[in-house]
Amino acid sequence: MRAIVQDSYGSADVLHPAEIERPAVGDDDVLLQVRAASLHVGDWHVMAGLPYLVRTAIGFRAPKTRVRGMDVAGRVEAVGANVTRFAPGDEVFGVCEGALAEYAIARADKVEPKPAALSFEQAAAVPTSAVTALQGLKPLRSAGPGERVLIIGASGAVGGYAVQLAKAFGAQVTGVASPAKLDYVLSLGADVALDYTRGDITRSGERYDLVLDTGGNRSVLSLRKLLAARGTLVIVGGDGGGRVTGGFERSLRALLVSPFVTQKLTGLAAVVRQEDLHTLAGLLQSGAIAPVIDRVYPLAEAATAMRRLTDGSIRGKVVVTP
């Protein structure tokens, strides 16, 4: 089968097409005929092997898994002996191992039936980014409507879903983005869009019940200035920082400070769970949230798609189809 593989860490130049064996189905797995895959910043981190901390999990000299891509939508081709939820022909979306290929293996508990209202391309644009946003906004789901939410990096993949989800949960949403993307943030449903180049947002005097930082490098101390007395700060992922630990030290610092203040300060390393995919499927089917696709690339241009992912110009998700 055709696939996009890498044999060393580096830029998108390390990605190249190859003919490889179709993966074998384990007892708890489903084999997917990939119809679409989408890229997110985690794919870039694995490709680059950065920060170096991630190599402790994915391989020191080269990635243990040669085929890139995690977010997927496709048809079930075969199921393992222990799988009862799915059968060949079912249309699903979720996460897998090696989505940039004609076929991929996924654990049965990492995929969910595809909402009928979505195309395969739209469904592939959902899993990791939307689940991360959903988990980051967990406090809203029990707080009720009217909470004030600030989303830093609101025009990014996670931030874009966070804006839509926060509005679906009844929050008053302020999004922070670059000047060129303020209109995009408002189109997602934000009540207010702030230009991060026009002054220091931490000195605005505004206070929020929840601050979701999806793309900044502001210190935990400065972010606390944006919180209400019992507000919550959620730092998503590990972007920024140095090549060794990236931005993970901010999350660690938040956890260390949190016990000594009235606010809740935490980091989030999201894990895609079936229950979250199920929740998102309902919201997608109802139209409460919707994927935004920047561009669809053929599999042969996966390296170009990866470069586009990090050039700062995209609105929504980059999708790849076999």
Rank of each mutant, 00 (worst) to 15 (best):
R2T: 05
D7H: 13
Y9L: 09
Y9C: 08
Y9F: 10
S11N: 06
D13F: 01
H16Q: 13
D27H: 12
V34S: 02
A36S: 12
A37I: 01
S38E: 03
S38L: 04
H40E: 00
V41N: 05
D43L: 09
D43R: 06
V46Y: 08
M47R: 15
A48T: 14
G49Q: 12
P51D: 14
T56N: 13
K64S: 13
V67E: 07
G69L: 00
M70R: 15
E77W: 03
V79Q: 03
N82L: 08
T84M: 06
T84C: 05
T84L: 07
R85H: 10
A87L: 00
D90I: 03
C96Q: 04
C96G: 06
E97S: 15
E97C: 01
E97I: 01
L100T: 02
A101L: 01
A104N: 02
R107L: 06
A108W: 02
A108E: 06
A116P: 01
A116M: 06
L118F: 02
Q122Y: 00
V131Q: 08
T132R: 08
A133T: 12
K138Q: 15
R141I: 08
A143E: 08
A143T: 07
G144Q: 06
G144Y: 07
P145Q: 09
G146S: 06
I151Y: 11
I152D: 15
I152S: 14
G153F: 11
V158P: 10
G160E: 11
G160H: 08
Y161R: 01
L165H: 03
L165S: 03
L165V: 04
A166K: 00
A168P: 08
F169Y: 14
T174E: 12
G175P: 09
S178V: 05
K181T: 05
D183T: 06
D183Y: 03
D183V: 03
L186V: 10
S187N: 05
L188K: 04
A190I: 11
D191S: 09
D191A: 10
R198Q: 11
G199T: 07
T202H: 03
E206S: 15
R207M: 02
T214W: 12
L223A: 04
L227E: 08
A228Q: 13
A228N: 13
T232M: 01
L233G: 06
L233N: 07
V236L: 05
G238Y: 04
G240E: 08
R243L: 11
G246A: 12
F248T: 13
F248C: 04
L255T: 14
F260I: 09
Q263A: 14
T266D: 05
G267D: 14
G267R: 06
A269T: 06
A269W: 04
A270H: 09
V272F: 11
V272G: 13
Q274T: 09
Q274E: 11
L277S: 03
L280M: 04
L280C: 04
A281H: 01
S286F: 04
S286E: 11
A290S: 12
D294I: 05
R295M: 00
E301Y: 02
A302S: 15
M306W: 03
R307M: 10
R307F: 07
R307D: 15
L309F: 08
T310F: 06
G312N: 08
S313P: 00
K317V: 05
V318A: 07
P322C: 08
